[in-house]
């Protein structure tokens, strides 16, 4: 059989429940769209309480948009293989002939669709409720940064998915642990340059950091003095990160499958 066709079909197969789930279980709209809007609104009010210029409210909206993807990567990608194991699907995936990366890609594809809907809602909230004004100085660069940042982010999610499978139940807690510190390190609602060069450079391993920094500079030109690096350089680094994460994810998945087969933990639940 044609391997490419097999894997494309596998991606489609795994993305399907994600997309159908959105229609069949609409309660996600409340949990994953309406409620997060509230905390984003709260951060906008924080800046208002500090009499910050309107640009800063835009930082919150942009951070809110990108954070939806980060949360999605953590909860619907990274922790998912572990969950598949717990619900006994993993062994069927492993025994099937397609590449396991296709399963992860299918999950990512389905997840991106739902998350984009949520991110759009946040964007609309920012524009229509909080009157945030974006100035798109370079549409092409913006699109490139957004797409490459997402690829890097979901690549990281794929890598985490493999690692979490090995770590078992710890994965759930690691997800919880990663949330807020990453908000801080990636400069979720503020320019990452404020952290200082060393910390900002270290935090650049998180694709969110450079993605947000570049987009902030493109959408709010007056924030350029707060920019960490030139957006084009950031795009270049993000591209490298994408390749590294995807290759590392593939390696980790193979390695963990091997280790799991050796230790007998691939099909062992509740560990």
């Amino acid at each position: 059989m044609n391997t490419v066709l097999l894997n494309l079909r596998a991606i489609r197969g795994r993305a399907y429940p994600r997309i159908v789930g959105l229609i069949r279980e609409p309660s996600w709209i409340f949990w994953e769209t309406v409620l997060p809007l509230l905390s984003i609104s709260a951060f906008i009010y924080v800046y208002r309480s500090l009499n910050a210029p309107p640009m800063y409210e835009g930082f919150v909206v942009l951070g809110g948009v990108m954070t939806t993807y980060w949360l999605n990567v953590l909860w619907s990608m990274a922790a998912q293989l572990y969950w598949e194991k717990e619900t006994a699907n993993l062994q069927l995936y492993l025994a099937a002939p397609m590449s396991k990366m296709s399963i992860l890609a299918g999950m990512a594809f389905g997840a991106i669709i739902s998350t984009t809907l949520r991110a759009t809602t946040i964007l609309l909230l920012g524009i229509f409720v909080f009157h945030v004004k974006f100035v798109i100085s370079s549409p092409l660069l913006l699109l490139l940064v957004f797409v490459v940042a997402l690829l890097a982010l979901y690549g990281m999610g794929m890598l985490f998915a493999s690692l979490y499978l090995m770590w078992g139940r710890e994965a759930w807690y690691l997800n919880n642990l990663f949330q807020e510190p990453v908000y801080f390190l990636s400069g979720q609602y503020f320019p990452v340059k404020a952290l200082g060069t060393f910390l900002a450079a270290a935090a650049s391993i998180i694709p969110l950091t450079l993605g947000l920094d570049a987009m902030r500079q493109i959408l709010f030109p007056e924030s350029i003095p707060w920019g960490f690096l030139n957006p084009w350089i950031e795009l270049g680094i993000l591209s490298v990160l994408t390749v590294i994460f995807l290759v590392a994810a593939k390696y980790a998945l193979d390695r963990i499958e091997y280790l799991g087969k050796t230790k007998g933990t691939l099909t062992m639940r509740w560990q």
Partner: peptide, 9 residues
Amino acid sequence: VLVAMFYVV
């Protein structure tokens, strides 16, 4: 996160 937001403003 809040401390940093305060600082940048």
